[in-house]
Amino acid sequence: MTLDRLDLALIRATQGGLPLTPEPYAALAAKLGTTEAEVIARLTALQDTGILRRIGAVPNHYRLGYTANGMTVWDVADAQVDALGEAIGRLPFVSHCYRRPRALPHWPYNLFAMVHAHSRVDADALAAQIAAVLGAACHGHDILYSTRILKKTGLRLVD
């Protein structure tokens, strides 16, 4: 699907969020010079193609008590990493799961999975569940906890 000017305008107009008014799509339409029906049709099409992942609430992990946010990293056999990555992504406590290149010799890990827990002890238990799924295909792992946010501006649509 190719995004046209109106799709991009809609993405930009909602980067800060959906208007908190009783008729938010009509409010967007007025801002963009189109109709409410067109805004709803565009968002439906974007959702159907997966460009729009979801419309909903994004909680602040820390405020909900998820203070142990660990980047778990795994050295998984190349032949099995894609099938196992799918399985890890399905675990309910994993928020992001990616295959990335190794940076040898110091960084042997090719599978990254973010986990969120109320304590490091709980996060370590979640990592043990991941290890159980990976089994013998995994040759090593680590958990990197964030100790400080140095910058967080979020990804923005490029102009």
């Binding site: 991009l8 909602t14 968002l43 729009l52 992942r53 979801r54 419309i55 994004v58 649509l157 490029v158």
Partner: peptide
């Protein structure tokens, strides 16, 4: 408590 409410777009498609 919420960082955002609204549509979440896949960054891969955002040009």
């Amino acid at each position: 408590t919420l960082t955002r409410f609204g549509p979440l777009f896949n960054a891969d498609h955002m040009g």
